[in-house]
């Protein structure tokens, strides 16, 4: 029991040379492949008078764009591809745990760490791309060079928090469903699974929103100063 509940999330399916391939990797790639195929197939023949499928997809992209516009109106279109795909991937990665026999890739700390690392790098990437290297690096010395260590600590801690938050939520949901299944088998876990759907959507929203706000923070802290000065 002790180890069983824990190791379930680290099952090694097969070895690729010296590299063990876990279930998480396979699920992640399957989700990515499905999303890629669906978006490629539906973006191949876009019409001016869209069918129902195209309307639905346009609704999704429109909703994402509205959400980004509300936070970062000046640079929405530059950030849209990254944050949008993060959102869509997070939703499907969180929800895939509903399917019996599968575990969500985000219930593994490795996946969420990778996503958080992407967010960490993209904050600097977008900041440098929009403001240039010198001005972007200089903003770490504002308002006073003494605050530089605090800036660095906050960058690192918020990245770790981003990873641990998503992992903790999804992992604890799957674990709760598992424990309830052990206690009471039939129909009792259904409400927990319903909660799983809600929580998966909320956590995906929050993950993308925090990524967006961090990116916006890296861009806007300079622009606020410009307006004042």
């Amino acid at each position: 029991m002790t180890m069983a509940t824990n190791d379930q999330f680290e099952t090694v399916l097969f070895n690729l040379g010296p590299l063990p391939i876990s279930q998480t990797v396979v699920t992640t790639w399957a989700v990515m492949l499905c999303l890629l195929l669906i978006s490629w197939l539906s973006a191949r023949r876009l019409k001016l008078e869209p069918g129902p499928w195209q309307v639905a997809l346009e609704g999704v992209v429109g909703a994402i764009q509205d959400a980004i516009d509300a936070v970062l109106p000046q640079h929405a279109l530059i950030v849209l591809p990254f944050v949008g795909s993060l959102w869509i991937f997070a939703v499907f990665a969180n929800l895939i745990g509903i399917i019996p026999g599968l575990h969500g890739p985000t219930a593994d700390l490795s996946t969420t760490s990778a996503l958080a690392l992407l967010v960490f790098l993209s904050v600097h990437w977008y900041g440098i791309r929009i403001h240039g290297l010198r001005r972007y690096v200089r903003h770490y010395l504002e308002p006073n060079p003494i605050l530089l260590p605090f800036h660095i600590v906050s960058e690192i801690s918020r990245t770790i928090a981003l990873a641990v938050r998503l992992f903790g939520n999804i992992f604890s949901l799957e674990m709760a469903a598992l424990l309830i299944l052990l206690v009471a088998g039939f129909l009792v876990p259904v409400p927990v699974l319903l909660l799983h759907i809600v929580e998966a959507l909320v956590q995906a929203y929050i993950f993308g929103m925090l990524a967006l706000i961090y990116i916006a923070g890296g861009i806007q802290s300079l622009e606020m100063k410009q307006k004042e000065g």
């Binding site: 509300a70 903790g168 909320v202 929050i206 925090l210």
Partner: peptide, 20 residues
């Protein structure tokens, strides 16, 4: 609503740290 959700996520992560 947006700010509330972000704030709740921040507070919730404390509970998640305890869980970990």
């Amino acid at each position: 609503t947006r700010t509330l959700f972000i704030g709740l996520a921040m507070i919730e992560s404390l509970a998640i740290y305890v869980l970990v």
